[in-house]
């Protein structure tokens, strides 16, 4: 074989091939990368740049350095919206996980009309937030809403729902005659109403993901456990739950990220926007308010954006670290 390549030639060819590989790989990601770069990364970096300037009603006023950040941390409304956001996340993520897991397990059996049920749970997912807001505002209306009418029919009292700024702990304690101070009141009923609507809207999506996860669990695992005499709780505790942990973790991370970013729900559903006494003013709404309600300061809004981004990023990383230790693959 006279055409045998010398080691040097071989190396050259390999290198050329590798360079070609890199070039073609870059070509593959180019369309996506170009768009992400132009329409996400650049705008986002621009927004972060804004945070060092005073920009009022869209017009540049001047450089303020870290001024926006300093003012931000001194603004009690900021801290209030941060805690509102945390309550909202707490009020949506765990209930969403447990409710959807519960229904997914109910649906993960050979029962009749399965498709119909799945369809019904999924309807809110495909419905737009605009439509959801329209429907639920009408239902939750305190004076003529159907929910209060039904509650009254059941002998329970009417509630203020979206216009109720009192904390739910305060309301519960109040109903048994205990007076809780405002700071221990917990999230407002208005916020909890939003969390309920949000859970309702997202339930079907999470159910489908859990269903997928459940169907991925090999039947032999259950059979083996049954032979060992496991009851249904034990089956859940020692087979379903650990085998499902990647799915649960996925749902957990995604719904945390999404609920930290909640905006349109608040924007479309609460009036005054931000809820009674600002009790539904989550961080993204606070950001929006700072940037778009006159005196609109885009700089201040961008400072909030950066802080929010750091919070979400940190949380995601922490969640990943924890999960690496805990999640069973």
């Amino acid at each position: 074989m006279s055409q045998e390549l010398s080691p040097q030639q071989l190396r050259q060819r390999m290198q050329r091939r590798k360079r070609l590989d890199v070039a073609s790989a870059l070509l593959y990601i180019l369309p996506a990368a170009a768009i992400v770069f132009t329409f996400r990364l650049v705008p986002i970096l621009a927004a972060f740049t804004f945070s060092f300037f005073e920009i009022k009603m869209g017009a540049l006023v001047g450089y303020v350095g870290l001024g926006h950040y300093l003012k931000l941390f001194q603004d009690p409304t900021f801290w209030h919206s941060l805690s509102t956001t945390l309550w909202f996340v707490l009020g949506t993520v765990p209930p969403a996980i447990f409710a959807s897991l519960f229904f997914a397990m109910l649906l993960n059996q050979k029962i009749r009309a399965l498709g119909l049920y799945r369809m019904i749970y999924f309807i809110p997912v495909v419905t737009s937030m605009v439509a959801v807001a329209v429907i639920w505002k009408w239902i939750l209306e305190p004076e003529i809403g159907i929910l209060n009418y039904l509650l009254e029919g059941l002998g329970a009292g009417r509630l203020g729902w979206l216009s109720e700024s009192r904390g739910i702990f305060q309301m519960m304690a109040g109903s048994i005659g205990i007076n809780l101070p405002d700071w221990a009141g917990g999230p407002s009923l208005a916020l909890i109403s939003l969390a309920l609507v949000n859970t309702w809207k997202g339930l079907g999506y999470n159910i489908v993901i859990f269903l997928a996860g459940l169907q991925n669990i090999p039947q032999q695992q259950y059979e083996a456990a049954r032979i060992d005499g496991a009851g249904s709780w034990q089956l859940f505790r020692y087979v379903t739950w650990p085998m499902l942990s990647p799915t649960t973790f996925y749902v957990f991370i995604m719904s945390t990220i999404v609920s930290f970013q909640t905006f349109s729900l608040v924007y479309l559903m609460t009036s005054p926007p931000g809820g009674p006494e600002d009790s539904t003013k989550v961080l993204v709404y606070y950001l929006f308010d700072k940037g778009f309600t006159p005196p609109a300061s885009l700089g201040r809004a961008s400072a909030v954006a950066l802080v929010l981004f750091i919070i979400i990023l940190t949380l995601t990383i922490v969640q990943r670290r924890v999960a690496e230790k805990r999640v069973h693959y």
Binding site: I55, K56, M57, G58, A59, G291, F292, P294, P295, A296, L298
Partner: peptide, 23 residues
């Protein structure tokens, strides 16, 4: 209005509340 001013393309004429006019 805010986005358009930022982009240098405001309308010619607009309705405005006095709070906006002031800013």
């Amino acid at each position: 209005i805010i986005a358009a001013v930022a982009a240098g393309q405001p309308p010619t004429i607009s309705q405005a509340y006095e709070a906006w006019t002031n800013e």
